[in-house]
Design a protein around this nucleic acid. Structure first.
Lengths: 122, 122
DNA sequence: GCAGGATATATCGGCAGCCGATATATTCAG
DNA sequence: CTGAATATATCGGCTGCCGATATATCCTGC
């Protein structure tokens, strides 16, 4: 799963939203760090729909503008959970390896015991 | 950062390795889930080198075969830490939102806006 | 001796997918 | 009336992953 698809699924995880709302919600929930582009969104929406991970929920007309709401399917929730698990596992593995590398920088590994700071695992 | 670049950095985080070793190490540390492709590796290695996140460590000839070892730079470690943080935060955000969606499935969400998820990405 | 697999490097073309630019249309603020 | 926000959608370009391919050595099995 691509990062863009992951964030779209995350934005839809709690409730149905329309395209533009997904854009704003993604930026908000990531505290401004992640900004989905308009040019990216509709391609992702199409692909996720074809894959059955999201579905068209309803269409509304608010103040003369069309809003097309999407929702995650059960399959989409499963896929998002699995992806979140993979990401958390990968992040944890990276952190552990960094800790291992810092234990003996530029030297052959030694049994030198650290100051009990090891953990740090998410 | 792409996923492939992330895994290459992770594989190099504890000690210098050569290309083929990175391939095997990535598969091993991910418990067989992630398998970097040969065709992907050298492009990633070139890009990471240009970006200054890894550097050529040394070259060895073992049993008639050349081994080109790479190591992460300080900048590469920083980038990997930052990426691991982003991934862990994104995974956490996804899990929280899934929990919120399941709290009231198929129902209109409560107006409770606010610090609930303000934590967002770390 | 030789075929096949593991080790080890590298390149290339095809294809998927992200992004910036662009288009269209309405509402509201200045 | 101009610009920004809201809201949809498309398209060309570029980046980057992947499968296939090439080259070369060593070891195992037959």
């Amino acid at each position: 799963m691509t990062q863009a698809a992951f964030f779209v699924l995350t934005a839809l995880a709690d409730q149905p939203r329309h395209g533009y709302g997904i854009l704003r919600e993604t930026e908000e929930l990531s505290d401004g760090e992640v900004r989905l582009r308009v040019g990216t969104l509709y391609g992702v929406l199409d692909r996720l729909t074809v894959d059955g991970l999201i579905a068209l929920d309803r269409e509304e007309v608010r103040q003369g503008r069309l809003r097309r709401y999407y929702r995650v399917t059960d399959e989409g929730v499963d896929a998002l959970v699995a992806e979140a698990d993979r990401m958390a596992a990968a992040a944890g593995a990276a952190r552990r390896r960094i800790a291992e590398g810092r234990r003996a920088p530029g030297t052959v590994t030694s049994p030198a015991r650290g100051p009990g700071l090891a953990g740090g695992l998410a």
